[in-house]
Simulated scan of single mutants.
Amino acid sequence: MKCSWGTVVVLPLFLGAALSNGVSYIRILEGEDATVSGDFETYSLSMLRCASVCTQHPTCVVWAWDSFGASCRVYTLLWPTDTVTSAPPSLRTYGDVGGYFLLRPSSSSTWTEAQQHCADENGIIAFVGFEKMKLLMQSMRSSAAWVGLHRDHVTGLWKDQLGNVPQDVYWGSGFPGSGSYAYYVVGVLYSALGDFHSDMGILCAYA
């Protein structure tokens, strides 16, 4: 199963998404009477201004706007959980998830098979910053996923699928050790010694 987001359109013409300072925010959790779980600051702002405040905050990847009372939530830190928070129908949640999607395969897969699952959806297995990763995982109610990091056994460095060496990677205690493939579980990364089967989700990026 592939996660799906609301239609990407531009405010103020439509209300499916908000474009602020070059960041496109897409409506998530639509029709679920829920929003993300995390720490937030509350403001009395218009919808478009709410998006702008999030864009200016260094750790904000998601915001929510309540049409009842024009109340704005700017999330400064998402919790490492796959549980979302109940919210009134008037609260609309928008996240910076553009370019990425999660797959939930019908059966378990290895990291190598996960690569192919992404390719089948015209994508590549991906790695993304932790706030956006938490946003994606909450949106899909998923606690674990294969991600696009692997060890280069020539250099010993961990690289993504484009050959880049990501910065600020937060490994679980005792990791990465001698593992070769990376997976994410509620807020931290772990490494697998071998290419084992797992029923985890898969983080992909559009190629």
Rank of each mutant, 00 (worst) to 15 (best):
M1P: 13
K2T: 01
C3I: 04
T7V: 15
V10T: 14
L11E: 15
L13E: 07
F14D: 14
A18Y: 13
N21S: 15
N21Q: 14
V23P: 05
Y25R: 03
R27Q: 11
I28D: 00
E30G: 05
E32W: 01
D33L: 05
G38C: 01
F40Q: 00
L45I: 03
S46D: 08
L48K: 09
R49Y: 02
C50R: 00
A51K: 05
A51Q: 09
V53I: 07
C54E: 08
C54Y: 04
Q56G: 06
V62Q: 04
W63R: 04
A64H: 03
W65H: 13
D66V: 12
S67Q: 15
S71W: 00
S71D: 00
V74P: 02
L77M: 11
L77F: 06
W79F: 13
T83M: 13
T83E: 08
V84C: 04
T85P: 01
A87F: 04
P88V: 00
P89K: 02
S90D: 08
V97Y: 01
G98R: 13
G99A: 10
G99D: 11
F101D: 09
F101I: 08
R104C: 12
R104M: 09
S106N: 15
S108H: 11
S109R: 13
Q116T: 11
N122I: 01
A126C: 01
G129C: 09
M133K: 00
L135I: 04
L136R: 08
Q138Y: 01
S139T: 07
S142R: 05
W146R: 03
V154L: 07
W158D: 06
W158N: 07
K159V: 02
D160H: 04
D160S: 02
Q161A: 01
L162G: 03
Q167C: 08
W171M: 09
S173M: 12
G174I: 08
P176D: 14
G177I: 14
Y184D: 06
Y184V: 10
V185K: 11
V185R: 10
L189W: 11
G194D: 15
H197N: 15
S198V: 07
D199M: 09
D199I: 06
M200Y: 15
M200G: 07
Y206S: 12
